[in-house]
Design a binder for these strands. Structure first.
Length: 423
RNA sequence: AGAGAGGUGGCCGAGUGGUCGAAGGCGCACGCCUGGAAAGUGUGUAUCCCGAUUGCAUCGGGAUCGAGGGUUCGAAUCCCUUCCUCUCUGCCA
């Protein structure tokens, strides 16, 4: 959520920046500023009434103390009208604050200068590319065929017990999943991220804190009986760990990692590219989250990108990094780098990680602040990234490492798997 | 799920109707002490909003003691609702 006083100060610059998203903020800003102005005027009038009430109350107290009951009672009568007025003003103020909040919820984050203009994923900027795309043998298979051939993943069983998009991993497939999770967590903790195990269901306040609510209400599974949401990413519980906190400047930076399953309804996504592991309702992901001093957050973003790079290098997967254009940028993000692995058998790039800086957009909702060296309270910057999402990494490994005689396991994973090939 | 207790500032913890934004401690900041540090010692130290003035410095006002509502001229303090925590009992990985 943007800060209203920042909008007030930078209206034109913000409108221009939001244009990169294809978002015309002119009207919303006017609406918000108008509500804000009325809010402030109401606040002022309310404060005046309350100040008067307070003065009277003090006087009445003094009069009673001095035994001047009659005078006190006279004053009491005067307060009646004041009370009514301030009550009305208070109600008006409450609705204005609420309305303003609702309007602000609809405005996405201001894109960073680096974000290229553009409307969709075709306008994303490739900023880095590495790794050799292997030439596969005749008859190489996409991962869903491989999963079947080697009995690693059973999609039909998932359909039977739950529904489409809930795969069942089996045997070496299950073991490979576990190996990847352990490997990712090890890499992250070695890089200084503290490991957390967090709940997989969150309350409404958490959903609001990181911005899933109210914007993406329909994308989360909602447990209505207890009003809890299944997490779509570990970002939600991990970032919310710090909701409402006032940190000391020397508490920063904070770096966390955690593995969780992720649940997404993926309402409205269909098409040819959702086969196999490409798009699921439940999948596993290891996430990294950072809470940073504003001066350091872009350096932190770069560090996170470097960190993910190193993992993909070790896995020897061909990958590229995209800087997302305005049209493809997430609602809450100021700058996002997507990592994609090349799926040789499908002949396409698959997104496997997304690393973002949210600046103060989440922190404002979270009320996540820190006391800086001057003793002033400031909103912190929040960042997160996948390190990494499992299904498509798995797809990439299966497809790129296949041979006519089986699938080789990437060297770094062998100690975690306990086997070198799947055959 | 039943019974009881409780939710206060960055943290701990006093405070049961008016001068309480709130004692005390810890932490933190600055100073003194010291060759330096520790200890000791002095001072300071909540947040948000509105307004004036405008340099994020200062001043005035308002709100905030889990959240929401009520009683009252006046509430951290009384009442109601709700959320959460703890203890005991019950149930169960």
């Amino acid at each position: 959520m943007l800060l209203i006083n920042k909008i007030r100060e930078n209206k034109d610059a913000f409108i221009q920046a939001l244009n990169k998203r294809g978002f015309d903020a002119t009207e919303v800003f006017d609406k918000a500023l108008q509500l804000d102005q009325e809010r402030r005027a109401t606040q002022t009038r309310l404060d005046e009434k309350l100040a008067q009430s307070n003065t009277f109350s003090k006087e009445i107290g003094m009069l009673f103390k001095n035994g001047e009951v009659q005078k006190a009672n006279l004053l009491k009568e005067k307060t009646v009208q004041l009370k009514e007025q301030s009550k009305e003003l208070q109600e008006r103020l409450n609705t204005l604050v609420e309305e303003l909040q609702q309007v602000l919820y609809t405005i996405p984050n201001i894109p960073n200068k680096l974000v290229p203009a553009g409307t969709d994923e075709n306008d994303n900027e490739v900023v880095f590319k590495e790794g050799e795309i292997p030439t596969l043998f005749e008859g190489a298979l996409p991962h869903w065929e491989l999963a079947k051939k080697y009995d690693l993943i059973n999609f039909e069983l998932g359909v039977k017990i739950t529904g489409a998009g809930f795969p069942v991993y089996k045997g070496k497939g299950a073991r490979l999943q576990r190996a990847l999770i352990a490997y990712f967590l090890d890499k992250n903790t070695q890089a200084g991220y503290t490991e957390y195990q967090v709940p997989h269901l969150v309350n409404e306040a958490s959903g609001l804190g990181t911005g899933q609510l109210p914007d993406k209400e329909g994308q989360m599974y909602h447990v209505t009986g207890d009003n809890l949401y299944l997490i779509p990413t570990a970002e939600v519980p991990v970032t919310n760990l710090f909701r409402g906190d006032l940190l000391m400047h020397n508490d920063l930076p904070i770096a966390c990692t955690g593995y969780t399953p992720c649940f997404r309804r993926e309402a409205g996504s269909y098409g040819a590219h959702v086969r196999g592991l490409n798009r699921l309702h439940q999948f596993d992901k290891v996430e990294i989250v950072r809470i940073e001093h504003p001066d350091n957050s872009y350096k932190a973003l770069d560090q996170m990108v470097e960190h993910v790079k190193e993992i993909l290098r070790e896995l020897k997967l061909p990958f590229r990094i995209l800087r997302l254009c305005g049209g493809d940028l997430g609602f809450t993000s100021a700058l996002t780098y997507d990592f994609e692995v090349f799926s040789t058998a499908q002949d396409r790039w698959l997104e496997i990680s997304s690393v973002s800086n949210f600046e103060t957009f989440q922190a404002n909702r979270l009320k996540l602040r820190f006391k800086d060296t001057n003793g002033k309270n400031k909103l912190a910057h929040t960042l997160n990234g996948s390190s990494l999402a499992l299904p498509r990494v798995l797809a990439g490994i299966l497809e790129n490492y296949q041979t006519p005689n089986g699938i080789k396991i990437p060297e770094v994973l062998v100690p975690y798997c306990g086997f070198e090939t799947i055959e």
